[in-house]
Amino acid sequence: MWAFIHKLGSPKWFYAISARLTPWFWAAAAVLLVVGSVWGLAFAPSDYQQGNSFRIIYVHVPAAILAQSCFAALAVAGGIYLIWKIKLADMAAAVIAPFGAAMTFVALFSGAVWGVPTWGTWWVWDARLTSMLIQLFLYFGVIALRGAFASRDSGAKAASVLALVGVVNIPIIKYSVEWWNTLHQPATFTLTERPAMPADMWLPLLVMVLGFYCFFIALTLTRTRSEILRRESAKRWVRDLADGHAGGRR
C-alpha cells in the first residue's frame, strides 16, 4: 500500500497510471452529465411554486458543492506539499485552484440568474451568496499569490500556506456571515426551507453532482498530466516520450 502511494508521488508513475484512468473518468463524466441534464431538464417534474425555473438547480447545486470541495482539495494538496514535499501535490493544487474559482463563479452566476424569477433581483446579501462571494475572493488570493513569486517553489509554498489558512477560515466566515444576515435583515426567503423534494427531482440532481465530480477528476488528471510534462520537460523520460511520439508519427 505504502509502496503504491510512494510510486504515485513520482510524476513518471503518476503519468503512466493516470493515462489508464483518465479516459474512464472522461467517459463517466460525459455519460453522467448527459443523462443528468436530459433527465433534469426534460423529464423531472416542474416545481409547483417556481415552475421550470427551478431547473437551474441542476447546474447551481453541483457547482456550489464542487466549489467547496475544490477548496478542501486545494488545502489537502497544499498540506501534502508542505509536509512531504511531494511536487505532484503542488502540480494538482496549481490545477485545482482555477477550476475551483471557475466553479464558484458558475455557482454565483447561476444563483444570480435563478434569483431573477424567484426573488425578482439579481443579487441579495443572503448569507450563502455572500459567503460564496468571499470564497471566490479567497480563490483569487491563492491564484494571485502563486503567480506573484518569481520562483515557482516559493509561490507554491506560499499558496499552500494561504490555502491552509483559508480552509481554517472558511467555516468561521460562513457562520459569521450567517449570523450577520440574521441580525441585519430577517430572511424573507430562504433556499433551505423548500419542501422536501420528491425522488424524481433529486435523483437527476445526484447524477449531476456525480457527473460534476467525474468531470473535475478527469479535468484535474488531464491538466496535471500536462503540468507534469511542462515542469519535467528537462527529464529524460519526458524527452523519450516526446521522441517516441514523434517517431510513431513518422
Binding site: L138, A144, N169, W180
Partner: peptide
C-alpha cells in the same frame, strides 16, 4: 487581496 477576505468575521 489576501487579507481582507479573512477580516470579514472580525468586521461583522
Amino acid at each position: 487581496l489576501l487579507v481582507l477576505p479573512l477580516y470579514i468575521p472580525i468586521l461583522i
